[in-house]
Design a protein around this nucleic acid. Structure first.
Lengths: 175, 175
DNA sequence: TGAAGCATGTAATTTGTTACATGATTGG
DNA sequence: CCAATCATGTAACAAATTACATGCTTCA
């Protein structure tokens, strides 16, 4: 068994730690719903990943694993001290990493795809997402933790840029 | 050997096809430089991946593989008809996929990190990148293919949003 | 009561990442 | 000519994605 110090944790692992910290304890399935609930918009985590990841984190000493007694005897996970420390130190460290756009439609554009062919679906999709973010923010913004609201705020701003970008292309305007 | 029709190609594969289409032919190492030259900002592709990927695409019939005769006898790849068709049909199809932000600093924020701790490095990093994009656009914008310029344009707009976002947080302003 | 669908999970496969290694070139 | 650096590549490992299962509810 690897000790906690040896295993380098990626973003996804920290997401799991973060979610469990909030919930107190959770089964992988719970995690799945929690992801769907918010972070999922920021960073995709497939549900199948969560089982493996939680097991790995437990093995490495970041999570405590216990089996339920009723029903399916599912595994519930909670943070160990090491887990809490790992999460906290992650939250405290700054990063100058800058993520690439990683946008499917934009890569196509890059390689010469016709903007007019891509734009309508993109405008549509981004507009929808923008609306979702805005309404979440409007309806629950004041209730959610600040970080969450900030992330949503960032989300809306980027979506607005996308909508404008593709809308311009849809209407045949230059850059 | 799998036939071309069976293998589902991801974005990274299409990037390889796109780059080879431009160059006519290329070794995996050439691809590496080409990636560094532009798409890399949009979508990371590690150089180690390129060897495996090119081999896989050749095996699947999308690329023709021939060995150089001099020196290291490296493998050079060029598009087959199937490869060209795959690339073209990819370029022609629209997508309503909307990529998540996938931003390291933002996930931290989401989980409660202190904005003031993250903001300075982020402002710095995004500002640098913004400047790079802007100067590329200014200096070569009119020379590059339209799609490339558009991608850069999108990049600068997003970077601007990031800079403003983090700058506000750095100065302690609310959302 | 049985069909639909959500809850819950495992396994296989594919991709991406890191680490390492060696050959070639070149400025000092 | 030698140390540094770039070119070139392979192998091992970790993570993500897809596919497939099966149990549990629920409501027609």
């Amino acid at each position: 068994m690897r000790t906690a110090a040896e295993l380098e944790l990626g973003v996804t692992s920290h997401i799991v730690l973060g979610l469990i910290a909030e919930a107190g304890e959770a089964t992988p399935y719970d995690l799945k719903s929690m992801v769907a609930n918010g972070v999922g918009d920021l960073w995709t985590v497939h549900h199948a990943q969560l089982y493996a990841l939680a097991a790995r984190l437990a093995e490495a000493g970041y999570l405590r694993e216990e089996r339920e007694h009723e029903g399916r005897r599912r595994k519930r996970y909670s943070l160990t001290d090491a887990g809490r420390r790992a999460l906290e130190s992650w939250l405290e460290t700054s990063t100058d990493e800058v993520t690439e756009l990683r946008d499917h439609a934009l890569v196509r554009l890059f390689f010469g795809a016709d903007p007019a062919a891509l734009a309508p679906a993109q405008v549509e999709a981004h507009r929808r997402r923008l609306e979702r973010y805005e309404s979440q923010l409007r309806d629950f913004g004041s209730l959610m933790p600040r970080g969450r609201a900030l992330a949503l705020k960032a989300g809306t701003e980027h979506e607005r840029v996308w909508v404008e970008f593709w809308a311009r292309l849809a209407s045949g305007q230059s850059p």
